[in-house]
Each structure stands twice: as C-alpha cells, then as structure tokens.
C-alpha cells in the first residue's frame, strides 16, 4: 500500500531524511517512534506534500500512485490523510463549512457526486455519535481557541468523516488526557480495515496499548534503523533510544 524507498529530504539545505525506506501493506497499522527532531514530522509533511518538504531523491507511492509529484489536495483525493501534530487554526471558517468543503472537494476529485446538505448532516451526526463528540465543536471556527486536546480530537473527527485510505497520525496522542486518548484510539480502531493502512507516529507506548500495531519502526539518523513487533515499543519505553543508537555507532 504505502511504499517509501530510499527517501532523501533536506530542509533549508540540512539533510533530515537520508535514505528512509518503509512499507505499510494494506490492512496494517505501523507505529513510528524516534527521538525528538529525528524527522518524523518531516516524513509526514513530505508524504502530505507540504511546501519546502520536497524529496531530493527516492520514491513514495500509495497503491499505484506516485505521491511525490502531486499537489497536497491531489494526495488527499487519493485518500491520504495527515492528522497534524500541530493542527492549524482557521479563524472565521466554521468547522462544518470546512469539513463539508473538504468532503465535497475530495468526492468531486474522485468523480463522486457531492453530498446534499441533508446527507452531509446525517453523516456528521452519526460520526459524532460514534466518537462521542459534541456538534458544538463544528459550529466554532476551525481549531480556533481549541485546547490542545480538542484540536487532536478534531483531527480524528475529520479523519472519521473523510474515511481516507491511508492515515498518518503525527503524535495525535500527545497532550491528551486518558479519556481523550481512548477517543482517539477508538477512532483509529474503527477505521481499521483490510483495505486501509495507517502510520502512527508516537512517543508513547500508552497509545499502542489501545492501538495494537502490526509493526513498530524506529526512526533516527534520518532512516528507519530498526523494525520489530509491538514488543519493540515496550523495550523502547524501558530503555530509551540509547542502546539502539549506540549499536549503530559501533
């Protein structure tokens, strides 16, 4: 499903990703862990197509599609979704308007008919109910004045509504209280499906208790330096990255 091969990304001339390779087959959830500043968000932004995050070399494909040549909205239309580490405030644009515009833009790009106002409302209500979220959030301007936790919930809500093929969650669990963490994990688990893949970037084993990943990767020094099963997260929780990094240096 998602295939990343030998990806090199520099930011303002500074190499951040230096030959990163990673494959997430359809139906699987993979976790990416790694020290602060290792390049996890850089990977996420590069896949989503943010300005300034262009790959110097290597490839990234989703299904048959070469992601790297596409505009961000084209990647979204293909079904790629990034839950931002720092969701952006858009003052003056109601959440409802935003999600409806996004949903219909994606449908249009895929040649599907736009949703009627009623269909949209039904979908929103049902999804809110699934996630035990309040409609009030969608009446407010997007993320504006939201608490950190509310912003993360909002990302999960958007993900649930857009039903992407491939989800990247960049530290969606950071800064959440226990209940919110369960909401986020629940949102992810509900979307687990044989034709959907996920990449969950996190610092904490805690999230992985709720979302059991098929694989855990360690990103450091610009590459995936180790891959293992869920037990790898436990090991990292206990020992930190020191041993692995020391092993590399040796």
């Amino acid at each position: 499903m998602l295939n990343i091969k030998d990806l090199h990304v520099s930011l303002d001339g500074k190499p951040i990703l230096t030959g990163l390779s990673l494959t997430v087959p359809a139906g699987e959830v993979h976790a990416v862990m790694g020290p602060n500043g290792a390049g996890k968000s850089t990977l996420a932004y590069t896949l989503a197509g943010r300005d300034g995050y262009e790959a110097q070399s290597g490839s990234a494909t989703l299904g048959d599609a070469d992601l790297l040549g596409l505009e961000p909205e084209e990647r979204a239309a293909l079904g790629l979704f990034l839950a931002f580490q720092y969701p952006v405030e858009i003052p003056g644009v109601a959440g409802m308007t935003f999600i409806k515009t996004a949903l219909n833009a994606v449908r249009k790009a895929r040649g599907e008919p736009e949703l009627t106002a009623l269909e949209f409302l039904k979908l929103v209500r049902a999804t809110l109910k699934d996630l035990s979220m309040d409609e009030a959030m969608l009446k407010r301007p997007v993320n504006t004045g939201f608490s950190g936790g509310e912003k993360k919930r909002n990302e999960v809500l958007q993900m649930a509504l857009l039903r992407p093929k491939f989800c990247i969650l960049d530290e969606t669990d950071s800064g959440l209280d226990i209940d919110a963490l369960k909401v986020v994990a629940d949102g992810v688990n509900r979307l687990r499906a044989p034709d959907r893949g996920m990449l969950v970037i996190t610092h904490y084993q805690r999230l992985l208790d709720y979302i059991r990943p098929d694989k855990v990767h360690v990103l450091a020094r610009g590459r995936i330096i180790r891959t293992g099963g869920p037990e790898l997260a436990l090991e990292l929780e206990e020992k930190g990255y020191g041993d692995i990094l020391a092993g590399l240096a040796a």
Partner: peptide
Amino acid sequence: FYLRARGIPAVQARQLVVRG
C-alpha cells in the same frame, strides 16, 4: 496547507482563508 491537505484545491483554500 492545512486546507489543501484535507483535499481543498489551492484556489478554494485561498478563498476560504480570505473569507474567514
């Protein structure tokens, strides 16, 4: 970028930001 990453084309994303 946030709007475009949700699938909203650049021109429309600009309009939305201006609108807001």
